[in-house]
């Protein structure tokens, strides 16, 4: 029986990522992990993680927070490591030594995904391993002390691109990894955020049902790195979605679909002003930086809607032909 994705049913399920891990208070990563594993609750799963906050905090010495088989080998290779696990599964299944239907999930930070692990991820997706790779994206190297990554947004202050009197934080735009993964032509790619948990869990579940490689990029607020209130992770996640800073969408077999459109798109200031990493943007004389960010977000959002429209009209054409 498929477990319905509602609180009543999910609350009866065992948590396969337990309490007692050592992630910071207010960290969104364990919330995201719990959502992923709950969405996968009907399957046995094997999880791989790259080196990072989640890894160092979830399995220390003789303690582990993982009630599912879990493997961490190094920083840049969770996708390659999991591709080995999945290949062994295929081999043993072929030989009749395993009969269970096991799902394979990588859960890795943005450093291990956008930057050092990109090659390994790209290779695993291109080889069409049956796995779901999830990036829990907190937009910097938080484990080593908040250094910039390819996922760090423009003008964010980090310890390696500190907002100074001359350079106002990270000068470059963030890499659009979700699009890069969609360009691999894999069957399913999605962006999600924990504030919109039914959307997130539906996407995880959908991904697990599709054979082959899948990628999800999940927005994961970090109060230490972003210098925000400890209990604002979900609020920030919601604001990121409502300002279109982090659009929720999926690309299924190449078809783009925006899964949530804010009724009223909020100005980016509302997201920025709660975070210490953007505080310098509110200093007098730096107003144009915020408007520049707003312009980038608007352009990105409009492009996404256009992409969706192109596919929607194509789908309509197809339907007409069928009729």
């Amino acid at each position: 029986m498929v477990t319905p994705l509602n609180l009543k049913e999910l609350s009866k399920k065992e948590l396969r990522f337990t309490a007692g891990h050592r992630l910071c208070a207010g960290c969104a990563a364990p919330t995201v992990v719990k959502m992923i594993l709950l969405a996968a609750c009907d399957y046995p799963v094997v999880v791989a993680s790259s080196t990072g906050c989640l890894e160092v905090s979830s399995c220390i010495s003789t303690y582990t927070a993982w009630k599912v088989p879990w493997i961490h080998s190094a920083f840049e290779n969770a996708a390659a490591t999991l591709s080995g696990v999945e290949s062994m599964y295929k081999a043993l299944k072929k030989q009749g030594k395993i009969d269970k239907e096991i799902k394979f999930i990588a859960i890795c930070g943005d450093g291990g995904t956008y930057d050092i692990g990109l090659q390994s991820l790209s290779g695993a997706m291109e080889r069409w391993h049956d796995m779901l790779y999830v990036c829990y994206n907190n937009e910097a190297y938080m484990n080593t002390g908040i250094q910039r990554s390819g996922a760090t947004p423009t003008y964010a202050d980090t310890t390696t691109c500190p907002a100074g009197s001359v350079i106002p934080g990270k000068p470059q735009p963030r890499k659009d990894l979700t699009k890069i993964m969609a360009a691999h032509g894999i069957p399913y790619v999605a962006q999600a955020a924990p504030s919109h948990w039914p959307d997130l869990m539906k996407k995880v579940r959908k991904a697990l049902e599709i054979p082959g490689p899948k990628f999800m990029n999940i927005f994961t607020p970090c109060n230490r790195g972003w210098r925000t209130r400890t209990d604002d992770a979900i609020l920030l996640s919601r604001l990121a979605v409502d300002t279109c800073f982090w659009p929720l969408y999926e690309v299924e077999k190449g078809v783009v679909r925006v899964t949530y459109k804010p009724k009223e798109k909020k100005p980016i200031e509302e997201f920025l002003k709660l975070q210490g990493r953007f505080r310098h943007l509110f200093e007098p004389g730096r107003e144009q930086l915020i408007s520049e960010l707003q312009r980038m977000i608007d352009e990105n959002w409009e492009r996404l809607l256009k992409e969706e429209e192109i596919f929607a009209s194509k789908e309509e054409e197809k339907e007409e032909v069928v009729k």
């Binding site: 890894e55 160092v56 399995c59 220390i60 010495s61 003789t62 582990t64 993982w66 009630k67 599912v68 088989p69 879990w70 493997i71 961490h72 080998s73």
Partner: peptide, 9 residues
């Protein structure tokens, strides 16, 4: 279930 690759301090 087993965990591979712990942090050991």
């Amino acid at each position: 279930p087993k965990s591979y690759g712990p942090l050991i301090l």
